[in-house]
Amino acid sequence: MMKRKLYWSFILATFVITGCANNDNAMNDREDIVNEMDPSTELQAPRDQELNDRLGYVRYTKDQLENSDEINHTAKMDRTEMANMITKMILRSDNFNEVATLVTDKEVLIAYELKPEAQKEYAADIAKKTAMSVMPRYFEIYVSDNETLIQDIHSLHNSNSSERNDFDNTIDTIIKEMKKSPQGLKQNNMEEK
């Protein structure tokens, strides 16, 4: 149990540090993300292989974290980048033709089109576990092979969490539909609901 907490703490710290390091290039990153999300482009090797191969390491003292800038610092997550990462990872599986992912402030919604030979329960398990491996544990993850939900998710892609009350009903409706689809294989102590 301690190893699991340590593992998730390390993952969260990695995302926080990565997010902070990328603030200077936010505009360029947005353009790159939009280009990467274009399904007509092929998956390419990272632009800087040395950067891709480099290990991540950070070391601080307690005093360094107690300065005024760090006390008021909050962790931020690039939800578009998270959705991008989840979608690409799922598409690496041979079971999927198309995947749409929406990351809100507390949910991850994944709708997909399966290949005809794909097993629904197994594919749902892949999609859900992929999102679980990327997102902090407090996120609720819903998956569906109902292809019409891809458009429903797409309709929310320009929304933001400050408008949450405006699209709560739409999110709730999509989640109700998603729950009609397989949500992944049942696992010991992994399924909470």
Rank of each mutant, 00 (worst) to 15 (best):
L102N: 01
V103P: 05
V103A: 02
T104A: 03
T104G: 00
T104E: 06
D105C: 02
D105K: 05
D105Q: 09
K106T: 08
K106R: 13
E107I: 11
E107L: 04
E107H: 12
E107W: 02
V108G: 00
L109Y: 03
L109N: 04
I110L: 02
I110V: 13
A111N: 06
A111V: 09
Y112D: 01
Y112R: 08
Y112M: 07
E113V: 13
E113M: 12
L114R: 10
L114T: 09
L114Q: 07
L114M: 07
K115V: 11
K115M: 05
K115W: 01
P116L: 03
E117L: 05
A118T: 08
A118D: 06
A118W: 10
A118K: 08
A118E: 07
Q119G: 10
K120Y: 11
K120A: 11
K120I: 12
E121A: 11
E121I: 14
E121W: 05
Y122G: 03
Y122A: 12
A123F: 05
A123Q: 06
A124C: 07
D125Y: 12
D125P: 07
D125C: 04
D125T: 14
I126M: 06
I126G: 00
A127G: 05
A127T: 03
A127W: 07
A127K: 06
K128R: 14
K128S: 13
K128H: 13
K128D: 08
K128N: 12
K128Q: 13
K129A: 03
K129Y: 07
T130R: 02
T130G: 04
T130S: 04
A131T: 10
S133W: 01
S133F: 04
V134I: 15
V134R: 01
V134K: 02
V134F: 01
M135S: 06
M135R: 04
M135F: 00
P136N: 10
P136G: 06
R137K: 14
R137S: 13
Y138W: 10
F139K: 07
F139M: 09
F139A: 11
E140I: 07
E140M: 11
E140F: 13
Y142K: 10
Y142H: 14
Y142A: 02
Y142L: 03
Y142Q: 05
S144M: 05
D145E: 02
D145M: 00
D145K: 06
N146L: 08
N146E: 10
N146A: 07
E147M: 12
E147Y: 06
E147K: 15
E147D: 12
T148W: 00
T148G: 04
T148C: 02
T148R: 08
T148Y: 05
T148P: 00
L149H: 01
L149C: 02
I150Y: 01
I150G: 04
I150M: 03
Q151L: 11
D152C: 09
D152P: 05
I153A: 01
I153M: 01
I153K: 00
I153F: 00
I153P: 00
H154G: 06
H154L: 08
H154S: 08
H154M: 08
S155A: 11
S155E: 04
L156R: 05
L156S: 09
L156K: 05
N158V: 11
N158T: 15
N158C: 02
N158K: 13
N158L: 10
S159D: 12
S159T: 15
S159R: 15
N160Y: 08
N160I: 08
S161P: 01
S161K: 13
S161F: 09
S161C: 03
E163P: 07
E163N: 15
E163D: 15
E163W: 11
E163Q: 15
